[in-house]
Amino acid sequence: MGTYILENEEALKKVLENMLRKGMVEGVMVQTAGESGVFTSIITDPDFISKTAPLAPLFSNNNAVFLQNNGTRNIAVVVKPCEARAINELKKLNQINTDKLVVICADCQGTINPRDGLITEPLTEAKKKELEKDSIPIRKACTVCEHFTPPEVDISIMAIGTTGGYILATDREELLDGLELKAGEIPSGRNAEVEKIRKENLEKKEKMVEELDKKLGSPDTLVEFFKDCIRCDNCRDMCPICYCKQCYFETPLGDLRTDEMLHQAATKGILRIPPDILFYQLTRNIHVAAGCVECGACEEVCPRDIPLLDVWKSITGNVQGLFEYVSGMKRDEPLPLVGFKESELEEVK
């Protein structure tokens, strides 16, 4: 693995520009500071790279959603760790061809929803204090994030542990052809610093799960929890792991018309509309729990402000723990629900 010094974000832009100019990729998916705001875009003209903000700490949705079923042309993508994990998970589910992607991912110290503020420099502890003063919230998912460093990707950018600037690490040195980067080293204190942040976030996560468990411990609270859901399907559509071409809830069995609703109502005398809210959520839970990357995109896009992430934090930890699996960290690894061991779960008699 080669490790190099990037003095600043500009140096990273040079890497992107170089890939485009040399034709290694046909486009770069990256955040861009446009006139109306900062948004993710696909750039094909290398001259536009100067307008990009690859490390802007903004997250409005998980962009892995837009990489599903990618085609045959090469593209580089600059993504957050939770997006990179979703890409890896989708690769294992045969929904993304990573051979056609150059995934570039940097340490992430948290993001904000662009609705709450437009910031283009990556967050640091000092910057976070400033935001707090201005009452700009860090996304909830980020405050409880355990995997904020790059998983398996093509190019990792490390910020944590460095004294200014970044360290670029890659196994694919050919992607740097023509650039003269100074060799660098992964800072020795990095691991300790990463672990420190992880521990803090983990504590917050545990508290979150505890609170939820307390709430759900009493009767009927799950119904109560989802009572505002209008089945708009945003959480499903914007979840990178919910990838089915045909969702059960769009088949005649799941997309109930009045005849079926009357049938369901008849067993209890009453049926709430839209029907099957709990069934919908639980189905998503079953389908997604083993792969959820805890990005919080679902909660971000819920128009009824249902704290969906709390549920995912609780379920994902349990389910992935059960199979000793952490989703999206690697590209080649058996999926928990595809593989099995003959001698396991022997409590079933």
């Binding site: 639980l282 083993a290 349990n318 059960l322």
Partner: peptide
């Protein structure tokens, strides 16, 4: 087994 795990969560 995964589903059983979730069942607890539903109450």
């Amino acid at each position: 087994t995964l589903m059983e795990d979730l069942l607890e969560f539903t109450g």
